[in-house]
Design a protein around this nucleic acid. Structure first.
Lengths: 243, 243
DNA sequence: GTCTATACCACGATAGAC
DNA sequence: GTCTATCGTGGTATAGAC
């Protein structure tokens, strides 16, 4: 089957995916505004106007990436607040899930946290991101009040912690990593330790966080949990139509 | 004296300073590439071509800001490596001096750390910044080897620590702060604590760092140390020529 | 779905009067 | 030193053939 004509829809998805991938890398390197549609097209290997068959505008490309970058963490944070567990445990769970998301994401999300992206016509995403930051600050405040964390301004803690997530992106770029869980736990351990009043409780905190993560994963993906293993769909570079 | 004609050079410096100030704020908000010279001019209150009397190009404005943003920290780090003290103490001294510099700088340096700034025609600054980061990684590595720090990848530590400095900028923006020393010590304490193997040694570490800072200040500014108190030159908003 | 050709606009920068 | 007027370039996006 499908010998009659090439699988057009699969091909389109493939091109669309490659546009997002190359655009994300360029945005990470040079920023959104400094990246031209010609550069994106050249990286993908098509002519510049061809991009506009897949996306209505340059902003729409960015929009698709922002959806990946912001909506997933926002959803997991929302799931977090409904979970049991101490503030520090829940915060650590969030840090882990955030790092985990980055490490398994096929796009380099670094450029999407730049400031030129989140103003202008992107108020929608800015608002979502602010909500995310507020949630983190709330967890920090609780942890400080309950004595789990040392005294720290929630805003400072929030920026250092989200900055820590950026550090994960900087080091591991796009390109999914071999052992994302291990790396994500390492990062979240160090970041949590930063404010833990009694650092010797870090292991216990991680156990609590791990349970929260398990519960969220169980309730969030009842149908499938494809982020864990598959690793398929990586090396498909070129296709040939029937001769 | 000087009644004959208005002090032209002082006026020029004033306009030049305001251009840098407004440009820095806009770069911090929207990124360098996304900021237009018309916006800068509007913020300053002049017409767009007037900028080009003070700066040869838009890049030259950025260049002047990068000089402030990168050369000062690079110089202090260079001074640091010649000082006595343990790696953790020297690193803490660097974190303090960096935060201190930001808090007393009249420009919002946030946008200058964006990636769109440090590629393209700004290889010179990129190289300087890389050197700075390498110096930090070297200190981290030493601190880990000597057991002062927990085991951590130097690259991750470097990005979280420089990210912490960015957090200081994000919170305190441009505009010099009332008690910069206090704020800078708070930030550097929290950031150092993140990796300190024995957090209870934080106070001792700060004492060591403080001594290093004093020595650097003594040798770096033999003629004057104007960063500490003066606070002058703040509210000069408008001038009037002789009627 | 990709191509070539091109419209259209906003940007950085210059010229020259005041 | 600032203004008005304007140039040339390079950007996003569209039209229409294949």
């Amino acid at each position: 089957m499908a010998a009659r004509e090439p699988n057009r829809s699969a091909e389109q998805l493939e091109t669309r995916h490659r546009i997002l991938r190359e655009a994300a890398t360029l945005f990470a390197d040079k920023g959104y505004a400094a990246t031209t549609t010609r550069e994106i097209a050249a990286a993908v290997g098509v002519q510049q106007p061809s991009l506009f068959h897949h996306f209505g505008s340059k902003q729409e490309i960015l929009d698709s990436l922002l959806r990946v970058s912001i909506e997933v963490p926002a959803a997991t944070l929302k799931a977090l607040v409904r979970q049991e567990g101490s503030p520090a445990e829940r915060l650590m769970a969030h840090l882990f899930l955030d790092a985990r998301h980055i490490l398994s994401c096929p796009y380099n999300l670094l450029g999407l946290h730049a400031d030129d992206v989140l103003l202008g016509d992107f108020g929608r995403w800015r608002a979502k991101l602010d909500e995310l930051h507020r949630g983190i600050r709330r967890l920090v405040r609780s942890a400080v009040q309950e004595g789990e964390f040392v005294a720290v301004e929630p805003e400072f803690a929030q920026w250092t912690l989200t900055g820590g997530t950026l550090a994960v992106i900087r080091i591991h770029g796009g390109a999914p990593r071999p052992r994302p869980d291990r790396t994500a736990w390492q990062a979240s351990r160090l970041l949590t330790r930063m404010y833990l009043a009694r650092p010797e409780t870090l292991d216990a905190c991680q156990r609590g966080a791990s349970e929260i993560v398990d519960r969220i994963r169980a309730e969030a993906t009842p149908e499938d949990s494809p982020a864990d293993k598959p690793k398929a769909k990586e090396k498909v570079k070129e296709k040939e139509v029937a001769p």
